[in-house]
Amino acid sequence: MTDQNENAAPAPEGVEELREATAEAAPEVAGQDRLRELEGELEEARKAVLYAQAETQNVRRRAEKEAADARTYAATAFARDILSVADNLVRALAAIPQELRDDEKMKGLVTGLEATSRELDSVFSRHGISKIVTDGATLDPNRHQAMFEVPTGDHAPGTIVQEVQAGYMIRDRLLRPALVGVAKAAD
């Protein structure tokens, strides 16, 4: 048996230097691969942090809006309940005949009821509660509820001709729709 190294042809010039350079470059190449891998992980981490920050900001904004809405519309349930009191006060004032309004014994009572009605309207106004205008308005299903139709040639179809019950808004939200009668074309 002969040794293969003895029979092998001598390595061409420079091959040994190439092997040494490759051996030296191998750790450098491996280091560059690791660097690229770490840069990729860093970029993913940056994206995750940005996403988390955006999500946190969205949650904060949502919470701020909900808190502002809660403050703005906190009185909604109470306001709905008090509307029946306002309706009854208006009905009571409308039911007083003129002869009782002129009677000296009743004048103080009527004046007190009218003052109470004005004060209630003032309180509503301070808290952003406003009456929905219906006189001659076109039916808006977001604010009005049609209770009946009135055949008439005096008004355009869809025009409100009678208010059965006043409607109210609390700022930009509907508190209670106005119950109305609507004109329709005469037969």
Rank of each mutant, 00 (worst) to 15 (best):
Y51H: 14
R91K: 06
R173A: 05
E37R: 10
R143Y: 02
D33C: 13
M147Y: 03
G40I: 12
A25D: 03
P10C: 00
D187L: 01
E99P: 11
I132Y: 04
A166I: 02
I129P: 00
L120H: 05
G128Y: 02
A86Q: 12
L120Y: 05
E41W: 01
A48C: 11
M147P: 01
V29C: 13
V29T: 14
L109R: 04
A68I: 09
D154F: 09
S122D: 05
V133L: 12
T111K: 08
Q165T: 14
T111F: 12
A74H: 02
K65A: 11
D154K: 12
R60F: 03
E28G: 05
A94D: 10
D154Q: 13
S117H: 10
R118T: 04
V49M: 13
T138L: 07
A23E: 05
A68N: 08
A92S: 04
A11Y: 10
L50I: 11
P141Q: 11
E114M: 04
P97E: 09
L109D: 07
T56A: 14
V123S: 14
D172W: 02
G108H: 14
I170G: 04
S122K: 06
L174R: 02
H127Q: 09
R143A: 08
A92C: 10
P27Q: 07
G112F: 09
V180W: 00
I160H: 01
V29Y: 13
Y168S: 05
L139Y: 08
Q53H: 09
A79E: 00
E28T: 05
A137P: 02
V29L: 15
L109T: 08
E24R: 04
I160S: 00
T152S: 13
A137K: 07
A185M: 04
M106H: 09
Q53T: 08
R46K: 15
A178M: 00
L18A: 06
D81W: 08
G31F: 03
R91H: 06
G181H: 07
G153N: 15
R171Q: 09
A63F: 10
E6Y: 05
A54I: 04
A48S: 13
V29P: 11
R173S: 02
E55H: 01
R71I: 06
G167V: 04
G112W: 00
K65H: 13
Q57H: 03
R143K: 10
E163K: 00
P177M: 01
E17M: 10
E66Q: 07
G128V: 05
R101T: 07
T56Q: 14
E104T: 06
N7R: 09
D135K: 03
A186K: 11
D102C: 13
E119I: 12
V59K: 04
Q98L: 06
Q98N: 12
D87E: 10
I132D: 01
L83Y: 02
T111I: 13
H144N: 08
L89Q: 00
